[in-house]
Design a protein around this nucleic acid. Sequence first.
DNA 1: GTCTATATTCGGATAGAC
DNA 2: GTCTATCCGAATATAGAC
Lengths: 226, 226
Amino acid sequence: MNSAEGAQRRKAEEARDRILNVAERLFASRGFAGVSVRDITAEADVNLAAVNYYFGSKAGLLKAVFLRRATALNRERMAELQAVVDAHPSGALPLPAVLRALLGPPVRWQFDPDRGLGVFIQFLARCQMEEEPELRALFYEDVEHLRRFIPALKRALPEMPEDEICWGLHFALGAMHHTFTHLPRLGPISQGRCHIGNRDEVIERMVEFATGGFEAARARITASAR
Amino acid sequence: MNSAEGAQRRKAEEARDRILNVAERLFASRGFAGVSVRDITAEADVNLAAVNYYFGSKAGLLKAVFLRRATALNRERMAELQAVVDAHPSGALPLPAVLRALLGPPVRWQFDPDRGLGVFIQFLARCQMEEEPELRALFYEDVEHLRRFIPALKRALPEMPEDEICWGLHFALGAMHHTFTHLPRLGPISQGRCHIGNRDEVIERMVEFATGGFEAARARITASAR
DNA sequence: GTCTATATTCGGATAGAC
DNA sequence: GTCTATCCGAATATAGAC
């Protein structure tokens, strides 16, 4: 490769990445149908034809945006979860630690100022609602990695049957997703009293809320078993 | 009014309502941008021009769908909340009862088989994300009625500062909205173990989870104040 | 690889007949 | 009130020059 080719490739990669970044942000805030290829190419400062050149189609671009981040997020969650398991080779797992492995990575991404991960969770939350079959399949594969939290939650809450655990998992993810997709609403509701300034504080709030929710269900179950 | 006019008016009202019902359902599942006026008129079995005739524009139709239900839902929540307040004229309010007033009506609507209210909460959750200013204003007014829950929650949790209460309110609404917008995901995650068959059971699950979340925050606060 | 120009479809809205 | 026909802009996608 000579230096001209190198420069060309670097430029191409930059253009491709610019498209991905802009698309991620616009899809996150307006949804797939609410964004046109023209919106994306205009903001990314590339030619209209570039999206089709690099990604084949608008749907192809959406897939690329998803795939670029999904693996890394899942890996981060799994690594945290594994660390919790390793630290407690036997006996019960501490519930907050398990929930921190579930909720921590998305929140940290949301607040990441450097790596440009800040909108991916919003992107995810919006695109998981898309109903086009091809996209559904993509997002449903992603559900599999969430299922790996179930055994861990069972070890944290031995008394709880699996369906109860799944409900709690569902509610916890809901609180998290809602927080990011409806961030603008938090201001008016609290009239400016709630600030999402501190990353770790938000994580701890969510973990605390979800832990409390699980514990309430556990209390009911152990009480009725008595 | 003669009988011919009466028949005509009935027919017109039926057509108008058919449009509202179909639009509510389609907007709920695909979002505003994901549905065309043509989709709606085709499914409602009315002419393409009918939407503009009755509602002026596509955005006007969205507003109409929203306004048709919003007042009634807010009234239901407020009536339940007032009943809790009336039952406890002084002293602390029971937290689960307050949360039931917040979460119960939407869930009951979601499960309503008769009045056709079943998709409005999904519609709400999706449309609250729309960013067109005109629509934002509409949905933001709706936030005001949520703020009326804050004094009640303060009476249920006297130790908690208002920002903590707002976070909890936010998380609780998130768990509820997520449950309805992502219902199809609950199946795969739980591999069929979670059923949303029973209305009151779902309400109690949500109330329990949210109560636990608030109580966890309360416990932290009273502990640190000690 | 990049761009212009364009094919083609689809979208919202409306005019005007009935 | 209802319907047909149509306008016009916007959308995705592609062909072909450079």
